[in-house]
């Protein structure tokens, strides 16, 4: 059970990080919309976090696949497909020259992503706690079992 716990713990931090990235990107976009930031800075700070987020998401999906968490793989598959697709079309980065024309679209996409990561976050927390509790209980059981001997 140790590795299981490790997996969820890793997932937890990863998802939290991805969540943070997406929220940051969204903030950049809305700052841009409200004119608190210029498009150059906005685009460059968004673009800085696009790839890391993709990598995190992709590796998590890979990890679930390897560890046989099929449900998690299914949940992650559409997002992975979307990301890979964007990357292959080289449209993953925000285009600073057209940023205002795609602002609405980019925001919408990121809001959906945000929803996805929030969902992931809760699932992961649940699984993490569940796994932890189970392992503790089991550990207790083992311990008590030992003690009982």
């Amino acid at each position: 059970m140790e590795w299981e716990l490790m997996l969820w713990l890793l997932s937890f931090f990863s998802v939290a990080a991805a969540l943070g990235f997406v929220i940051y990107q969204l903030m950049c976009l809305s700052d841009l919309e409200l004119d608190y930031i210029n498009p150059f800075d906005s685009a460059s700070s968004i673009n800085k976090f696009v790839l890391p987020e993709f990598i995190i998401q992709g590796s998590l999906a890979g990890l679930y696949l390897l560890t046989g968490h099929w449900i998690m793989v299914l949940i992650n598959a559409p997002m992975t497909y979307y990301n890979v697709n964007l990357f292959l079309k080289r449209q993953h980065l925000v285009d600073v020259t057209e940023i205002f024309n795609v602002l609405g679209k980019e925001k919408k996409h990121r809001l959906i992503k945000l929803g996805f990561y929030v969902l992931m976050f809760f699932i992961v927390i649940y699984r993490l706690v569940y796994t932890a509790v189970v392992s503790i209980i089991e550990g207790d059981n083992v311990g008590s079992h030992v003690e009982s001997f």
């Binding site: 841009l32 919309e33 004119d35 210029n38 498009p39 020259t97 940023i99 205002f100 024309n101 602002l103």
Partner: peptide
């Protein structure tokens, strides 16, 4: 909402 021509938008209406 949308601008057309040769320029770059620096904010949504600038």
């Amino acid at each position: 909402s949308k601008y057309h021509g040769h320029f770059m938008l620096r904010s949504s209406d600038l």
